[in-house]
Design a protein around this nucleic acid. Structure first.
Lengths: 106, 106
DNA sequence: ACATTACGAAACCAAATGGTTTCACATCAA
DNA sequence: TTGATGTGAAACCATTTGGTTTCGTAATGT
């Protein structure tokens, strides 16, 4: 049986600050591994690993061009995060509403 | 020098599925550690550790009541997440817009 | 044809993470 | 006072994580 998805989930993927920087960098443009890694103080191999984690989570796409591998942002999986967040928004909205009420009752 | 800043950031705190379940559980009501841990297959001590991580990130508050320690959701730090997300929303909005354009050009 | 470039896989390592069990200590109930 | 309950700290353990260096290979440049 093919193992469909021990994939990394989006929550775990964005937990690392370097990976968040990668997403930010790749939101502008598609870039090759070497060029990407020039923006970071760690080795190209380490960057490559981070990119694979992001790819596993579906947050970036890989494309081979000659000897390069180019990556670009794939924002769709972030919708899961947005949906997760939306559940909690009402709690802080609620707090804000209570605060407003309190202030206005003055 | 007192270290004001939280030890764990919100991204790292929500990366763990157990901790996300904890947040969900505590959004309903304030609960003691023992009661909370009855909802999980792991030890009370392990749950307690997760709660401390969440507290470090500011996502739950602790309150001592007699010999109990009660926790409840503190959703405010999730705003940082929302803000981070908002930057990426335009990218998928953009994609949707392009798709719409393409479909309508038919 | 040969050297250079771009990259991933592999082996390895230290530190962090998520879990356990045990123990000490308050607090509450009898 | 004595016993049960609620909890955190500590010591410990296995696995995961984030990093490294080394090496092989494919594509490109000269």
């Amino acid at each position: 049986m093919a193992d469909i998805s021990p994939k990394h989930d989006v929550f775990q993927a964005i937990a690392d600050p370097t990976r968040r920087e990668l997403l930010s960098l790749l939101s502008d443009q598609e870039m090759s591994v070497t060029i990407i890694s020039e923006h970071f103080p760690i080795s190209r191999t380490a960057v490559s690993k981070h990119l694979h984690v992001l790819a596993d989570a579906g947050l970036v796409s890989e494309r081979k061009v000659g000897r390069e591998t180019r990556y670009k942002l794939q924002p769709e999986p972030l919708m899961e995060l947005k949906q997760w967040l939306s559940y909690y928004e009402r709690f802080w909205d609620n707090k804000l509403a209570k605060l407003k009420k309190f202030v206005e009752a003055d």
